[in-house]
């Protein structure tokens, strides 16, 4: 079963233990969600929702870098999942990239299945929680939360 913990070599960062099936399942999820990340408006929100000229300038200046950062984060996750495993080590910077990638995947998926307000979890039946989109949301959230519990040290 998947485990996320401090690195056993004593270095900062995280250690992910994922067996072959877990790596395959996460890789498959990534394949299916990556196109959503590319087109989800929630992934690329406006900086100036009421100031069209500034928003246009922001999109022009920051948009390409943000798009590259998103693609790079997903590529970092994919690269690790392709390691033979079962144990992969992340440097502190990679932990942050994973956290960013997992958040992107979750907000893109949430947009796709129409989660728009707080309270959505309580509104679901127990069966709903096990349905694929929600189970995926929970699985990605579990990995993110486990990484956060390691208290990644903010870098200056």
């Amino acid at each position: 079963m998947a485990a996320i913990r401090h690195r056993s070599d004593g270095e900062a960062g995280a250690e992910l233990e994922l067996d072959r099936d877990e790596r395959a399942a996460l890789g498959s999820l990534l394949d299916r969600l990556e196109p959503l990340v590319a087109r989800s408006p929630r992934v690329a929100p406006p900086a100036y929702p009421d100031l069209a000229e500034l928003e246009q300038e922001y999109r022009r200046l920051a948009g390409p870098d943000l798009e590259l950062a998103r693609a790079g984060a997903l590529a970092t996750v994919r690269r690790l999942l392709q390691e033979p495993g079962p144990v992969s080590r992340l440097a502190p910077g990679e932990v942050e990239v994973w956290l960013r990638a997992l958040n992107l995947l979750r907000i893109a998926l949430a947009g796709e299945i129409g989660i728009a307000a707080d309270g959505w979890e309580a509104a679901l039946s127990p069966e709903d929680h096990t349905r694929p989109p929600y189970a995926a949301l929970h699985a990605l959230g579990w990995i993110q939360q486990e990484l956060l519990l390691l208290d990644p040290v903010p870098e200056g």
Binding site: R42, E96, L99, N103, R106, I107, A110, I115, A116, A117, D118, G119, W120, L137, G141, Q144, Q145, L148, L149, P152, P154, E155, G156
Partner: peptide, 20 residues
């Protein structure tokens, strides 16, 4: 702004990371 699926612990991490 609030987002219904972003983890609260992740928001705390990002605020620490970006603003110190």
């Amino acid at each position: 702004w609030n987002d219904p699926v972003t983890l609260m612990s992740y928001v705390v991490f990002v605020l620490r990371r970006i603003f110190g």
